[in-house]
C-alpha cells in the first residue's frame, strides 16, 4: 500500500515547519521517515546532509544521537523511570559531563523542578508531555520532531505545552518539524505544508488562517 508518494521537501536549519493533514493522511509515517525511524520503499532521504538510504539501522541511530529530539503524541516515557531519569536517558547514551545537573535544569525550565523523582504515572498528561519536552531539548539538538504533541491533552494544557515548545525552540535556535492536524498550532510555524492523499503541498498563510 502506498501511503506517501511524489514527495519533495527540504527543510533548512533553524526553520520551523508544520505538516498538516487529516487523520490517516500519513503524517506520522512521513515524520518517521524524516527522522530515519523507518525506511521508505523508494526515494531519497537525507538528514544533516547524509543520505539515510546509505545507512543501516545503526548508522541512522548514530546520526540521530544527540542531534535529534522527539516529542510524541503519547509521550513515550518509560513508565519505570523517574522524570529525571527519563530526561537523562538520551544523555546517557553519549556520556556527557554534568548530565545530572543538565537534566535538573531542563526539568526546572519546564516547571517540574520539584517533581524530579516522580514516576510518569504520578504525573498528569500535561506534566508528562513537559517531561518529554525537557527530554527532547536536553541534548541541545539541532532538530526536534514533534508528532501531534497536544493530541492527548486537553486544550488548555495543550496550549501551555505548545507555548513551552516554541519558547524552548526559540531559545535554542533549533529546527522544528511539527506534525499536527491543529491549524492553530501550525500557524505558529514559519512554514506550513498540507499532506493530502499522500501528496505534500505548501499552504499560504491565508489558508492556515493568518
Amino acid at each position: 500500500m502506498t501511503i506517501l508518494q511524489d514527495l519533495g521537501l527540504s527543510i533548512v536549519a533553524g526553520e520551523s515547519v508544520a505538516i498538516l493533514g487529516a487523520s490517516g493522511a500519513g503524517k506520522s509515517t512521513l515524520l518517521g521517515l524524516l527522522a530515519g525511524l523507518d525506511v521508505p520503499t523508494s526515494g531519497e532521504l537525507s538528514l544533516f546532509g547524509e543520505s539515510l538510504g546509505d545507512l543501516d539501522e545503526d548508522g541512522r541511530a548514530q546520526l540521530r544521537a544527540g542531534r535529534v529530539g522527539f516529542v510524541f503524541q503519547n509521550f513515550q516515557l518509560l513508565p519505570t523511570l523517574t522524570a529525571l531519569e527519563n530526561v537523562l536517558l538520551p544523555l546517557e547514551l553519549s556520556p556527557t559531563a554534568g548530565a545530572d545537573a543538565r537534566g535538573r535544569e531542563w526539568l526546572g525550565r519546564v516547571g517540574l523542578g520539584e517533581r524530579l523523582d516522580h514516576l510518569p504515572k504520578q504525573l498528569s498528561g500535561g506534566e508528562q508531555q513537559r517531561v518529554a519536552l525537557a527530554r527532547a531539548f536536553v541534548t541541545l539538538p539541532e532538530l526536534v520532531f514533534a508528532d501531534e504533541p497536544t493530541g492527548n491533552l486537553d486544550p488548555a494544557t495543550g496550549e501551555r505545552v505548545i507555548d513551552l515548545l516554541f519558547e524552548l525552540n526559540q531559545e535554542a535556535g533549533t529546527t522544528l518539524v511539527l506534525v499536527t492536524h491543529d491549524h492553530a498550532l501550525a500557524r505558529r510555524c514559519q512554514r506550513c505544508l498540507q499532506l493530502d492523499e499522500g501528496c505534500l503541498a505548501p499552504l499560504s498563510l491565508e489558508e492556515v488562517g493568518i
Partner: peptide, 12 residues
C-alpha cells in the same frame, strides 16, 4: 525502541 530513537546503536 526509545533508546534507538535517541540514537543508540544495535550493539549498545
Amino acid at each position: 525502541g526509545l533508546l534507538r530513537v535517541f540514537g543508540a546503536g544495535d550493539r549498545l
